[in-house]
Amino acid sequence: MEKVETILYGRRWKSFLGFIALILILPLVVSSQYVFTLLILIGIYCIITIGLSLLIGYAGQISIGHAAFVGIGAYVSGVLTVKYSVSPWVAMGIGMVATFIIAYLIGMQVLKLKGHILALATIAINIIVYILLVGLSDYTGGAGGLVGIPNLSLLGLDLGNQVNFYFFVWSIVFVVILFSTNIIRSSVGRILRSIHDSEIGTETLGVNVTKFKVAIFALSAMYASLAGSLYAHYINFIAPPTFYISFSILLLVMVMVGGVHSIWGAIIGTASIMFLNEVIRFVGHTYFNINGEVEIVVYGLIIILVMIFIPKGLVGILDVRKISPVKSSIKKDVTIKKNVASEKGV
């Protein structure tokens, strides 16, 4: 018998092959250090947005506080390596486990909330974590930030090297994609989508809905923590403002622009927004002599335009059937409509 997974969701190796080919080809055509840095940051951000896609697109739960979890990961890595000379790999692991536990405990409380209230609660979490990062200055270095975070090295390979780190980060992105599509293409993926469609219907079938919502929230937080650790070891310096709400919003914009119902959408969205970011900054500085954060204004505009014209995101414009791991996502309804429907309840 054909594999049940294939019967339901088709094959995914073509998307994987395309992804790997792209990652291998890019370094051949890119030589500028500037673009390499950008590609590495895109990889790091993709780890976060893939998790957000699971949480927002599949389970239908919003978070405007994920920068907090990125911050926790970055600071656990930073503080443990700088102040306590812990091995970066151990610190990264501790950060991920700690973030998973913290997010699990928070999730058990806030995921009882719905819609706008949940969004507000996650913003509050972000603010609390930010205040702690600034306030616990004995450990975190406070508002001045934490300097001297070491580069990673793997089996003698120096990951401080741009090209090495590029391949390292994107290998991790690939593992994250593999892990996430494994989830999506299983009973857990179906449960997440069914929660989105009818929470009460899902519960009736014997599913502890809260347990799954909390688990996916904690998993996406753990991804964010991993990304935070990678960021800290790559930039070697972290400061609290990086992990403020504005970053959470940026992550949300990336997921929405790419298409919230597909993890490939998260990747496309992340890359698009990062490039756009650079363009805006360049144009703003060069032609309009603007030095403030003009990107924020553009993000707002983008969100509005995306919601009106391409609610399924960029991935919805492309032929989704060929690249989306979930066939049925093509017929997914407009996100706005969904929110209204989910508020109706039974």
């Binding site: 494994n182 299983s186 993926g189 449960i191 069914s194 079938l205 599913v207 688990a215």
Partner: peptide, 26 residues
């Protein structure tokens, strides 16, 4: 579950006997 297929809907009905969680699936 209107955004899921007929087969997926009915498969959801077997949730009681399914042990898969986020990590075993991943």
């Amino acid at each position: 579950f209107s955004n899921m297929t007929v087969l997926e809907n009915v498969m959801m009905g077997t949730s009681v006997n399914i042990k898969t969680n986020v990590f075993s699936a991943g």
